[in-house]
Design a protein around this nucleic acid. Structure first.
Lengths: 188, 188, 188, 188
DNA sequence: CATGAATGAGCCTTCATTCAT
DNA sequence: CATGAATGAAGGCTCATTCAT
């Protein structure tokens, strides 16, 4: 019965990823169903399997997509900056700005790790570690040149990331008080 | 047919709540099953319904139990303190200490709100609001007496709670660096 | 909601096995569906899983049931007979009579081995080997006492079984010519 | 989207039939899938429909191919022989030799009749009946000339065919004991 | 001819829930 | 109170088949 309105060949996968992210954000991975997903995309349930291998595969796709975009954007943000303090400042700026703009992705990535099967869990954790390594490298370089007085670069890195992520949970650029916070921060 | 090892009359409900918390923490509300729960408690699936009305009812129970304990403990922590600055300090101390000790409950309560049906969602939100009101009251009192220079007590309260909750996501009393953080904080 | 006409507790499993055998015989293991099975038993599809673990488990049950009944009946048929020639005659009588009476079971057991998963396949083959060993033992004993002049007991056993099974594929006690065959055979 | 390695124009249908026979033999008609078939042939699933009309059509093709080859080979084997006893001997020789060499086809044709839809079932049965008629004719001729003392040619024919088919289920020319059987038989 | 993507029906299985015993 | 067996709904996934490109 051929192709129907609402399906556009190669763009279908993109639509699946988009709708998938929404649904996982809204209902959780276990809570969403592929029937919902298909309905949002505008295709029948079975057709999803022309684009993903399984429901789990969709989650993996979401993870990988997020992490790879994140890593690429970070590299772009740090590009050309040489001295560690500036790199650190750029890292912090980037991290908060990027994560605050993508609350859905961040929430999904943080709360659905438990739904990844062992193999995929490992792969996802590896990607995250690559991101952490960027910060560790900055801290190590600054420590080596004597600019940063830190005892242990990895431990410090985890501390910084934890605190920054904490910010992302409560900072909402559209909230009433965001303006005042922003003013204080940028007046450094 | 008769009672089995593992079920001890009145203690069964407590076991269900305990195991239920573990499972929701581990797999999420949608991800856990009543089969698993019954297995951990040591009874059959149908027997659960002698103690809970439904799966949703279990989640509600978990929420209520957590919030009521929290409110009671807060009242105990604030009891007898009169001046707002001391109350605020006590609130902060209490909040962090309490939440850091109950990461499982906190995680569940924060991430499974979406799984509460509308009515229960409202009830849970109401309980949380009671907690927030305690802080708002402290801030208002301090503002009224001129000790705190804040523009808007509720907004400030949400900001403080968000930041404190942020801490709870990364602070781990058993982590390598916890000692040094703790030293800095208590030496105020 | 509660128990319905057509389901009688402990007898349900027996009904499942009966209907299951019919269906596998009629449509093959892959060709039958659990919907059909449930319909024939008079319960809903999901209720089957209170009695079997899976569709595969049903097939395994059918195999085991057949083989264990067969082994027990064989032992009963050979009981008390001492001399190998008489044992052999009893074995042949038994084998043909038993298999001709259970064409459905025999067909299923012979044609659905390929649908058994590796582990179950092995288990089924082991049971069959037990049956063969009974015949091998008879032949060996007869050979040892000099009554049978055979070069290799196992090989002879497989030959005999193959030929007897061949008979079961075409001999039909209800067919037009069965009477004359029977007359010839019993006139030995 | 041109043509791919593995598909060679006109030879594709032959490859489909070959692979189809293998798969039906291995998994049964219901158990095999067109995905597997396409994979073995080296084309995509949809491309199969350039060569077969449906899955059922493949099975019909397999049946027809087997039966027509069989009938032609039988006619060749019987060609020129005039006297019924010699014809009967030739028929038996041919039947066993041919079927023993094509165990896969024979198994499929015997065990998948139930998967043929009514119309095709009839057609297949008709072809088989043509084969049987050859034997019936031989028996009738022999009976008419007084060489064979048989009461009913068709019934005798079915009996002979059943027994010969029985042989084909256990006789394996590559088995350890085949040599001795063969010696006995040919020394008639 | 081959392909990729779509379809709808159906499959096995699991789930939360109920209730007679 | 606990149990075993039942229920209906749903879930993820596969299948044969179609057709525009």
């Amino acid at each position: 019965m051929g192709r129907t309105v609402g399906s556009m060949g190669a763009k279908t996968m993109e639509a699946i990823a988009q709708a998938g992210l929404d649904l996982v954000y809204q209902f959780g991975y276990e809570g969403m169903t592929l029937r919902q997903l298909a309905a949002r995309v505008g295709i029948r349930q079975g057709s999803l399997y022309n684009h993903i291998k399984s429901k789990q595969d969709l989650l993996v796709h979401l993870y990988r997509r997020h992490m790879e975009t994140l890593l690429a954007a970070l590299d772009a943000a740090l590009g050309g900056i040489e001295c560690p303090p500036e790199q650190l400042r750029a890292f912090v700026d980037f991290h908060v700005a990027y994560h605050v703009e993508r609350k859905r992705e961040v929430f999904v990535v943080n709360s659905e790790l438990r739904s990844l099967e062992p193999t995929n869990h490992t792969a996802a954790t590896d990607l995250r570690r690559q991101y952490e390594r960027r910060l560790i490298a900055i801290l190590s370089a600054g420590s080596a040149e004597g600019t940063f007085a830190i005892a242990d670069a990895p431990v410090t890195a985890y501390g910084i990331l934890g605190m920054l992520s904490g910010i992302c949970t409560w900072y909402d650029p559209k909230a009433a008080w965001a303006a005042s916070i922003s003013r204080q921060y940028t007046s450094r």
